[in-house]
Structures are given as C-alpha cells and as structure tokens.
C-alpha cells in the first residue's frame, strides 16, 4: 500500500512539476538509432542474451529486443548499448 502511495505521489509530482518521468519513476530510457543501435538506461540486469534476442530486467517487468546478429557494445550496471539489426522492442509485463 505504501509503495503504491509513493508511486502515485511521484506520478503526481512528475505531472504537476514538469519533471522528467524516467528520473522520478525509475523507468528505462531507450534511445534507438535507426535499426542498428539501441541504448537502454536504467535496466536492472541481463536475463538472456543470444545473437537474436536480448532480454533485460526492468524495475517493472522485462524488455525484450528481437533482431539479428546482436553484439553488446558496452554494458554497465545500469546502461547497455546493443548493436545489430533490431526488429522488435517489446515490453513484457506479468
């Protein structure tokens, strides 16, 4: 209940005070350059990595990226830069 309250307050603050949502709400910030690069900030770890699929753990749910010939260019605790041919970016909520 308390967590929900916190979320709500943050959401409200973000709306009212015009602050970026990703900072306040721990959402991933995803930057894509065409099909070839994808840059994800604020992830919570690697779940699966093959040359056709990358799954990342987020604060809420997972992010699935599908494509071809994936190479992780850089990986840091909260950031990841993926290179390859990206076909899909999907959020999985369960």
């Amino acid at each position: 209940m308390a967590k929900k309250w916190g979320q709500r307050i943050r959401n409200w603050m973000a709306n009212k005070m015009d602050l970026p949502q990703d900072v306040l709400m721990d959402l991933p910030r995803i930057t894509m350059i065409g099909q070839i690069h994808i840059y994800i900030e604020n992830h919570r770890g690697l779940l699966a990595f093959t040359d056709k699929e990358l799954r990342l753990l987020l604060k809420q749910g997972q992010l699935q990226i599908k494509g071809k010939s994936f190479v992780i260019k850089t990986i840091l605790p909260e950031e990841i830069l993926l290179e390859g041919k990206i076909d899909q970016v999907m959020f999985i909520n369960d």
Partner: peptide, 21 residues
C-alpha cells in the same frame, strides 16, 4: 547462466564490452 555471470561482473564494477554470442 552466462547472463547471470555478466550481471555479477558488471555489478562489481568490471568494464565489459563487445559481448558476442
């Protein structure tokens, strides 16, 4: 569980790049 291993590494401050399968 190589993904887990990589997670462990980056959380411990190792710098990793060009990860290929």
């Amino acid at each position: 569980g190589m993904e887990r291993f990589i997670n462990v590494l980056i959380r411990n401050g190792f710098y990793i790049w060009k990860v290929k399968r």
